[in-house]
């Protein structure tokens, strides 16, 4: 899943980038409102973590300008403003969640996961697709009863395919949601990742993740 962090504290951005990347998220960073708006308009993010007091363009303005964007990411406001009217104003302006600094990274992570689930209309953190059971929070995956040893990115890839089970997922979509803007994969990176994932799923892996020639991949 791809997350955009728009936050003016570079120190905080870097820590969030490291932490979320380890959890399998593709993380992009923007240190001011204008850059954040540009990233959010031009990339299909799943979640936007947005500070309110930003240089150049404040968070509320970013939120307002994203309102008419189709397939807008779910927005989590992450700010030092803790007044009730700030929360109400943020949520009324289109934010999906509001977290006040200082915060526990675990809580931020849980809220991002919740927003991802909401985006893909899932109610549980455990996704079942056929013989696959995927716990997106605990980072555990089993297939036909056997535990899978996956890297964070493989887990993210499997999660993305799982939440879109039955749908054809294009390579571009996988690139967009699993890799950040700063680390564009080479043309066969997605194919290689799918190949490795199939091998970890075992003999049924190829049937479980099917290739739609010239279009992409379908799970389940």
């Amino acid at each position: 899943m791809r997350v955009l962090i728009v936050e003016d504290s570079q120190t905080l951005c870097e820590s969030l980038r490291v932490g979320l990347s380890r959890e399998g998220f593709a993380v992009d960073i923007a240190c001011d409102g204008e850059l954040g708006l540009s990233y959010a308009r031009n990339n299909p993010y799943d979640v936007l973590v947005l500070d309110l007091m930003l240089p150049k363009l404040d968070g509320m303005s970013v939120l307002a300008r994203l309102r008419d964007k189709p397939d807008r990411p779910h927005v989590l406001i992450l700010t030092a403003n803790d007044r009730v009217q700030d929360r109400v104003s943020g949520l009324n302006n289109g934010a999906d969640d509001y977290l006040v600094k200082p915060f526990a990274f675990e809580e931020l992570l849980a809220r991002i996961h919740a927003l991802v689930r909401r985006r893909y209309e899932k109610t549980s953190s455990v996704v079942h697709v056929g013989a696959l059971e995927l716990d997106v929070v605990a980072h555990r995956a089993t297939f036909a009863g056997g535990a899978l040893d996956l890297t964070a990115r493989e887990h993210a890839l499997l999660e993305y395919l799982a939440v879109r089970k039955g749908q054809t997922v294009t390579r571009e979509e996988i690139e967009d949601h699993i890799y950040g803007v700063n680390r564009l994969p080479s043309s066969n990176t997605v194919d290689s990742a799918i190949c490795i994932l199939r091998s970890k799923l075992g003999p049924d892996g190829k049937d479980f993740i099917r290739t739609k020639r010239g279009q992409g991949y379908v799970l389940g």
Binding site: T11, L12, S15, L16, G19, R22, A80, N81, P102, F105
Partner: peptide, 20 residues
């Protein structure tokens, strides 16, 4: 308000480091 962000920076850096 001014202390919230640096505290967040310290907390997040330490929590992320402790996770791995």
């Amino acid at each position: 308000h001014e202390l919230r962000t640096p505290i967040s920076e310290v907390l997040t850096a330490s929590e992320v480091a402790l996770r791995d």
